[in-house]
Design a protein around this nucleic acid. Structure first.
Lengths: 334, 334
DNA sequence: CTGTTAGCGCTTTCAC
DNA sequence: GTGAAAGCGCTAACAG
């Protein structure tokens, strides 16, 4: 029962507080015999260090915060694992914060992490750039952004350039004769993705059409929103659903309307998970490797915590377009 | 930059440390004018409380640990949300620990949470019952188990009785003429689920057959393992895949073998997500509402932390069997 | 209503 | 190589 303190251990081992502390911190200047006695006392009493006391005194926590946009989103848990795997070998614990896709909640989570005095923060932000940079400046701890689509001017960033994937997708669909391109989006990433879509469509000789673009206010509304879009005339002949969680309701709505994916309508999902290959036809996707991004972010953060940043301030990854069975030629009657 | 302390605030506001502390803790015995001055100083300096100091002194953290078996498993993030939603209104933060489905890692995560002096712990254990109860006893803080399939004798438990769902599934399949029932499993839940399957099959007049039961060592092996099973003769005519993540590779392997789900082979998944309805045919499942379980666990934990446990020591939920298109009559040639 | 004071459990000089 | 002592930032008890 952790009301055992270092003092109890010292008393039992007949040494001073300082010696117990030295043993706990693997200080080599402790005689083996002494160490053994202390270890025995620790085991006998079931002593566990009080992190609050330790952190307060030493002014470091050996913990880093990981603030994600939305924990329930596919791929996010994988990203957390990536961070853990990079940090654990260095003795750092990971404290996860969740923004619930809401800037207000995000601010609270951010503060909560800072108040716990994490040594650094890895952040996949939902808030706008200006707010993010301001919060980082005020926090006064090393921060690395990731998941961003453009670099921050002030904060180290692991970014993913989505343009190549969007361009490839748009070119592919244009070549297949598609002219009406639809978009199902939700959450803080919608604005950016629509912008990238506009650019990509333009380069492919197509244009955005707001009639085929919907933002889903609530995850549960996705099915109804897609259904409504499909029932209007004309309807899109191709569709991008983002983020990943928008895919299943979209697929279901399409099938319930009696449309054949890959024939009557082409579908591209965002994020490549096992489910993409489980669908029939298999799902084309824009694929992003968040695990690697997160790991990179963790590695860079470590450098900043140690005060020696050898890595470049901006790391640039790419997303890729993967064509599968869900994309086919535009229907002839279109 | 949080090197600002309560002392800096006190100096600027021209009050004592105690008064600043009282303002921070919403102590009503502070004159409004004083409070306003303190608040102004706090804002001006960007003061943020040091949780380590606060927790050390007050001997409570207003944080509860949530230790899960595997963060990357479907439904787990939903369960975390459930806990957050129950605890946030009471001012408690949630610290998530991840056992990576490994008892050794679980022990570390458990200790890490205890060392941070969380006020209580919600635990979906991967370790065996005896170890769990021993660790709980040593931790000396309130713990509530959930996700369990049977109650602990010593620890409050929110359990889910899987027998009714397994029975319903077995009866349904037996009635449809199935005689060879397969099982794809992974992780710490395999043993229990196999036991429940045995009971259920027995009640339905069927028997387990080890030839059709596989445990997947690594998630990535699932496809190959299922493929191998399907290529043996005879092969099962119905298949349960658990946990949820085993479903997509299983479905893919079945299709790649040229088998039609719901006709040549019936499939039941574990856990009802949007993807179950996105498949074609739609996926039959054993459905468990972890969000509700987690919320219940959080509510009970709160009572134990406050020292007033009015709720029963054991809460019993049920899982349900949902038949959809992926289950059909056994093939005639079987 | 507010100031003063004594620690919470630990790390870290500084002596010896 | 080890002990003694100071103090991290904060809360809570006690004066006033």
């Amino acid at each position: 029962m952790p009301n055992v303190t270092i003092a109890d251990v010292a008393r039992l081992a007949e040494v001073s507080l300082g010696t117990v502390s030295r043993v706990m911190n693997h200080n080599p200047t402790v005689r083996p015999a002494t160490r053994k006695a202390v270890l025995a006392a620790i085991a006998e009493l079931g002593y566990r260090p009080n992190m609050n006391a330790r952190n307060l005194r030493s002014q470091r926590t050996r913990a880093v915060g990981l603030l994600v946009t939305d924990l329930t989103q596919a791929l996010v848990p994988q990203a957390i694992r990536g961070v853990e795997m990079a940090l654990h070998p260095h003795g750092y614990a990971v404290l996860v914060g969740d923004a619930h896709s809401d800037p207000a909640v995000e601010r609270e989570s951010f503060n909560s992490l800072v108040d716990r005095r994490v040594d650094g923060l890895i952040w996949f932000p939902a808030s706008r750039r200006a707010e993010v940079e301001e919060m980082v400046a005020e926090a006064g701890i090393p921060v690395v952004l990731f998941g961003q689509t453009s670099p921050s001017a002030t904060v180290p960033t692991v970014m993913v350039d989505e343009h190549p994937a969007f361009d490839a997708m748009a070119a592919d669909l244009a070549a297949l004769g598609h002219r009406r391109f639809g978009f199902i989006g939700a959450g803080p990433t919608v604005r950016g993705r629509l912008r990238r879509l506009e650019t990509a469509l333009g380069r492919a000789g197509l244009t955005r059409d707001p009639r085929f673009e919907v933002t889903v206010p609530n995850r549960d509304d996705c099915y109804a929103v897609v259904q409504a879009m499909l029932r209007r005339d004309p309807r899109p002949t191709a569709l991008l659903a983002t983020p990943h969680d928008m895919v299943p309701p979209t697929v279901r709505a399409i099938r319930d309307e009696g449309l054949r994916i890959g024939q009557d309508i082409s579908v591209i999902g965002f994020g490549d998970t096992e489910w993409a290959m489980a669908l029939d036809p298999t799902l084309s996707v824009i694929s992003v490797d968040y695990t690697t991004h997160a790991r990179d972010a963790a590695t860079i953060l470590l450098q900043h915590i140690d005060g020696i940043a050898t890595a470049p301030r901006v790391i640039r990854h790419q997303s890729t377009y993967v064509r599968r069975g869900s994309v086919g030629p535009a229907p002839v009657d279109a």
